[in-house]
Simulated assay, not measured.
Amino acid sequence: MTSPLLDPVPDDDGAPFWAYAARGELRVQICAECAEPRFPPRPCCPHCRSFGSGWRRMSGRGRIWSFVVPHPPLLPGYAEAAPYNAVLVELVDAPRIRLVGNVVAAPDAPLDSVDPARLRIGAGVRAVFAPPAPGAVPLPRWLLERA
């Protein structure tokens, strides 16, 4: 059975990100030469042009940099989850790195489990991973740090 929601399609550069996510770890690619984090993962560092890279584990803490509550849902698979949120989270460990996701009440909670009125720019969040369905890619989701 396929999901009615959009699932990421890992490529060669991003495959390690998803492999770590499957283990419940939030990691970002870093340059082996200048140590700058980069996301999305790519073969060449935009700062020093090195092709060397590694993966650094992040604390999972971040701040909501931006968010939206889609109205109306444009994709049919998301209609029954409305109103849900889509957030852009700036990582505390790497402030230039921003990840997209959803703020939820628990790792396996539905997309509409947090009242959108509770969301604020700058609110602290932390990454969690729900166990993925068989064959699915585990997505980072976010819990509000202060309930």
Rank of each mutant, 00 (worst) to 15 (best):
T2A: 14
S3Q: 04
P4H: 12
L6T: 13
D7L: 14
P8A: 06
V9G: 03
V9P: 02
D13F: 04
D13V: 08
G14T: 15
A15W: 11
F17Q: 08
F17V: 08
A19H: 11
A19Q: 15
A19G: 12
Y20I: 03
A21F: 00
A22F: 05
A22D: 15
R23Y: 02
G24T: 03
R27F: 05
V28D: 01
Q29A: 05
C31E: 02
A32L: 07
E33F: 04
R38G: 08
F39L: 07
P41E: 03
P41C: 07
P41Q: 06
P41F: 01
P41N: 05
P41V: 02
R42Y: 03
P43S: 10
C44R: 14
C44F: 09
C45I: 05
C45G: 06
P46S: 08
P46K: 08
H47C: 04
C48W: 09
R49I: 05
R49Y: 10
F51C: 04
F51W: 15
G52A: 07
G52M: 08
G52S: 06
G54K: 04
R56C: 02
G60I: 01
G62A: 07
W65C: 05
S66F: 06
F67G: 00
F67C: 02
F67N: 01
V68W: 05
V68Y: 03
V69P: 01
P70R: 08
H71W: 11
P72L: 09
L75E: 14
P76C: 11
A79Y: 13
A81F: 15
A82D: 12
P83W: 02
Y84H: 13
N85Q: 12
A86F: 02
A86C: 14
V87D: 00
V87H: 00
L88F: 13
V89D: 00
V89P: 00
L91C: 14
V92T: 15
D93M: 10
A94F: 13
P95D: 15
P95Y: 14
R96M: 14
R96N: 14
I97Q: 06
I97E: 10
I97N: 09
L99Q: 03
L99I: 15
L99P: 01
V100C: 13
V100P: 08
N102E: 12
N102R: 12
P107R: 06
P107T: 10
D108H: 13
A109Y: 12
P110Q: 14
P110H: 09
P110T: 13
P110S: 11
L111H: 03
D112P: 00
D112Y: 00
S113C: 10
V114C: 08
V114S: 02
P116E: 13
P116W: 07
A117M: 09
A117I: 11
L119R: 10
I121C: 11
G122R: 09
G122M: 13
G124Q: 13
G124T: 07
V125R: 00
R126Y: 10
A127E: 05
A127P: 05
V128C: 11
F129Q: 10
A130H: 01
P131V: 10
P131D: 14
P132T: 05
P132A: 09
P134S: 11
P134D: 12
P134M: 03
G135N: 10
A136L: 09
V137P: 04
P138E: 08
P138V: 08
L139Y: 01
P140I: 00
W142I: 00
L143Q: 04
E145N: 13
R146V: 12
A147H: 12
A147N: 10
